[in-house]
Design a protein around this nucleic acid. Structure first.
Length: 501
RNA sequence: GAGCCGUUAGCUCAGCGGUAGAGCACCGGACUUUUAAUCCGGGUGUCGGGGGUUCGAAUCCCCCACGGCUCACCA
């Protein structure tokens, strides 16, 4: 970056020199303001309303985002985290030793100002500055004030510029923060205990995904970044922590697109003596609660749609949904031979060569069903092959007690009545390992002996939940790309190539 | 991983085979209630990188990098 904007950069460096020559520290260590911008504006409004004529004195600070010189007077707009206020600066009002501050001032600088509040002829609340303190000189120009910063790559690579110039971006991340707080309040109020479990693991299990590999030098062994928090949370259920949840980052070594980032945030919860019906009811309530608290409505605008989170959400079995949308009944006895199912799916034009049974079911769901689900809906009772950690249905062991919550065409929740039969669990993991060998499916779940050991001590009947927070934020802030709701989304690094010979 | 589109000044963009442009920003000057301040003067550039075609390339062709969209994989 140092080779760009060289001219502007040099100009500002020489301003630093001139300031220091005047005895002004362009980066002083501290500055105490008496009011935030928001507080200063409120103070004036209150004073004015009470009919008092005395002018209130404030000290405010912020980044200079606008500068209008008028000869011996200047107007500067400064912005802090709470808002924007105008300064009216008459050079004659300033102490002589501050003349250089005004003379060398640029947009982008951080400035402190003391002065009295008044309203200009055009009705804007303004601080008439008696004293200016330069707090941090900026050496780089801000993005253009009118069009702002729109280049998507720059917005993500230099997110601070995006946040400075695009008001809506700040709102998205404020909403994200509020949603997570709101979710915590909801879980805490129901007696859940928030916990933290390891991110570096000897085996990446608990979900179907390809993991990142890393290496521990002292142990001299490879470790994996977690792909889910599931298995550790269930160990805590075994240990008698009956209601636990974790909000945290997980990592999946897969493609990047508008709905996927390699690291993303989930909330997983496990509740002893609950089943998937209880969890479904909790998810409905939680989503409506968060939407109401953060957006002050249960109906979110998403693209052309209005998504209504009000409970109860429709419940549709996976079998019915697939049959209605694709005409294929995965419960047909003919499909006990998986090749018959493969042939029929191929008949719809989808590519199915080499796919495992779980991948075939997923293909049907993701192509025929998921994109059509706009309003919040629970798809329930998945085939056992897709769900190695879920308990089988008592009346039909080909299916499990599982649900996925969909809205806006995206999966946002995945939950089941947890499998607590250690013998069946071992068989399921072994079946997954067979799928891995037979179909080369790197994304099947992995056998985790340490987890099986925990199960063998006995886990009570438990309802578990995984919820994608990034996608939830997308839905509630009306964003079509996951990169818009992650402050620093993954991008390729720019590597400078040496000049060709 | 594949296809399509894009990359020009600090920012937002035009130019698409014949001397590199505009607005904002920036620099110099005028201006004591402006607010996209205004007025006068100034263009600050490896046209993403490399190679090729051509008398001549920002412009046409090829390769590469990065980004966006669609698809594939996934949540």
């Amino acid at each position: 970056m140092a080779d760009r904007g060289e001219e502007l950069y040099r100009q500002r460096l020489s301003k630093l020199d001139r300031l220091r020559a005047q005895g002004i520290d362009p980066y002083p260590p501290r500055f105490h303001r008496t009011h935030t911008v928001e507080e200063a504006l409120a103070l004036f409004t209150r004073t004015e309303a009470s009919g008092r004529t005395s002018r209130r004195r404030v000290t405010v600070a912020g980044r200079v985002v606008g500068l209008r010189g008028m000869g011996k007077a200047s107007f500067a707009d400064i912005r802090d985290g709470t808002g924007k206020i105008q300064l009216y600066i008459r050079s004659g009002d300033l102490p002589p030793d501050q003349a250089a501050v005004l003379r060398e001032l640029d947009t982008g600088d951080t400035l402190g100002a003391r002065g009295t509040l008044f309203k200009t002829r055009t009705g804007e609340i303004t601080v008439r500055a008696e004293s200016l303190t330069l707090l941090a000189k900026s050496l780089r120009p801000l993005p253009e004030k009118w069009h702002g910063l729109t280049n998507i790559e720059t917005r993500f690579r230099q997110r601070y510029l995006d946040l400075l110039s695009n008001e809506g971006v700040r709102r998205i991340f404020t909403a994200r923060s509020k949603m997570i707080s709101s979710m915590r309040r909801f879980m805490d109020s129901r007696g859940f205990v928030e916990v933290e479990t390891p991110m570096l693991l000897p085996i990446a299990a608990g979900a179907m995904a390809r993991p990142f590999v890393t290496h521990h030098q002292a142990l001299d062994r490879d470790l994996y970044m977690r792909i889910a928090t599931e298995l550790h949370l269930k160990r805590l259920i075994v240990g008698g922590m009956d209601k636990v949840y974790e909000i945290g980052r997980i990592f999946r070594n897969e493609g990047i697109d508008t709905k996927h980032n390699p690291e993303f945030t989930t909330m997983e919860s496990y509740e002893a003596y609950a089943d998937y019906n209880d969890v479904m009811a909790m998810v409905e309530e939680m989503m409506a609660f968060i939407a109401q608290e953060v957006m002050e409505t249960r109906v979110a605008s998403y693209g052309k749609h209005a998504i209504d989170f009000t409970p109860p959400w429709p419940r549709v079995t996976v079998r019915d949904a697939i049959r209605d949308k694709s005409g294929i009944d995965i419960g047909d006895p003919r499909y006990s031979d998986i090749e018959a199912l493969r042939a029929d799916i191929a008949g719809t034009g989808l590519k199915v060569a080499g796919l495992s049974p779980a991948q075939l079911f997923d293909k049907l769901l993701s192509n025929f069903v998921e994109p059509t689900i706009i309003q919040p809906t629970f798809l329930i009772d998945h085939p056992v092959e897709m769900s190695p950690l879920a308990k089988r249905k008592v009346d039909d062991p080909r299916y499990v007690e599982r649900f996925e919550g969909f809205a806006g065409g995206m999966e946002i929740a995945n939950a089941f009545t947890e499998l607590n039969d250690p013998v069946d669990q071992r068989l399921r993991f072994e079946e997954q390992e067979r799928f891995r060998l037979e179909y080369g499916d790197e994304e099947v779940d992995r056998l985790d002996e340490d987890y099986l050991l925990a199960m063998e001590y006995g886990m009570p009947p438990t309802g578990g939940l995984g919820l994608g927070i990034d996608r939830l934020v997308m839905l509630l802030t009306n964003q079509q790309s996951i990169r818009e709701v992650i402050l620093f989304p993954q991008l390729r690094s720019i590597e400078k190539l040496p000049p060709a010979e």
